[in-house]
Design a protein around this nucleic acid. Structure first.
Lengths: 176, 176
DNA sequence: TGTTTCATGTAAGACGTTACATGATTGG
DNA sequence: CCAATCATGTAACGTCTTACATGAAACA
């Protein structure tokens, strides 16, 4: 049920419409907690019913701006401090590695090479993000955004190194 | 739809019952592609209907052993070589970092410390797995299992380092 | 005036989780 | 004979994806 907390978190400090939130999900949270439009609008309705957010303003084209209520902030804080993070790792890349044995060594190497290139590309893209963001602005998303971004950088670097190493292992076992 | 491919992959070379598969999901694939009993039995029924697997033997207590058909192996190979991996990263730990700004610095440090300890514990657990597995046995799961395990080791090491670094950042920004 | 952007919502179906329900066989 | 293990299946519920449907306002 973390979508709920993603929405609450994005509303901290500044009211936003479903449309605004979608933009945030597609940019800031794209690599952290993806969500689509149906999900967001549905969650906004449920959060409103539950009293965790409310409509703070209405604008043109039926625009509704939602703001966090006290109960909403309390729920977010409760989740952050009291609720144990559940770590469900569905790692499709790893699943593919597990079954790489049904491929020929050539196919396996090709697929690891693809992974390496993908990781390198993702890494480069994050570096671009890092350069394009104005880190001088103060705010929760920029302060902790930098820390989250660093995670991404380290993650992709690790993935790239690992994929290269894995390819070496396969190559070594093949020529053996 | 990777559950399907996880099941197909586990059936490569050796028929197994739903019960057998559950054990594999809870051990080998626990950190790669978790699945529960309902899911597995449901998927076995669907794969049988689709002709990707078939009942190769029946045993006591209604035991049904399923084996991969040619079509099933072809589907697995197709998935591994032709289907683009979709990378949906729902990273709850990172989501929490994003919204850490609503916590006091003390609370934030506490939560990063918890992450550090968790990563260290996970790392240690994998090391135990590494030591307990008999790597001399030849087979797809052991060959590529070692590569997948290395991924886990590197991943947890990275996570631990990163969480420590993040705590330093927070601490530095606080005492500033 | 026409295109783009803003803006919200619903419906169908796939996928996943938890809990319930049942019973045979093995081993001590 | 009793407990543990083996073994399968269903039901209810919640979440996520994809697609459909609609229309107002801004801008060129």
């Amino acid at each position: 049920m973390s979508l709920r907390h993603a929405v609450l978190g994005l509303l901290v400090g500044k009211p936003a419409s479903g449309y605004d939130l979608m933009k945030l999900f597609n940019t800031s949270l794209a690599n952290v907690w993806p969500a689509n439009q149906s999900q967001v609008y549905g969650e906004l309705a449920r959060l409103t019913t539950g009293g965790l957010i409310d409509v703070s303003a209405e604008g043109p084209r039926g625009r509704k701006e939602y703001a966090l209520t006290d109960a909403g902030l309390a729920e977010l804080r409760h989740w952050l401090t009291e609720v144990e993070p559940r770590q469900v790792r569905h790692n499709e890349a790893l699943l593919r590695v597990f079954f790489m044995g049904v491929l020929t060594p050539e196919e396996a190497l090709e697929s690891l090479d693809k992974l390496t290139r993908q990781a390198a590309a993702d890494h480069a893209q994050l570096l671009e993000v890092q350069d394009s963001v104005d880190w001088s602005e103060e705010g929760m998303l920029t302060a902790n955004g930098r820390i989250a971004l660093e995670y991404g950088l380290r993650f992709f670097a690790m993935q790239e190194e690992w994929a290269k190493w894995a390819a070496q292992q396969i190559a070594a076992a093949t020529t053996e």
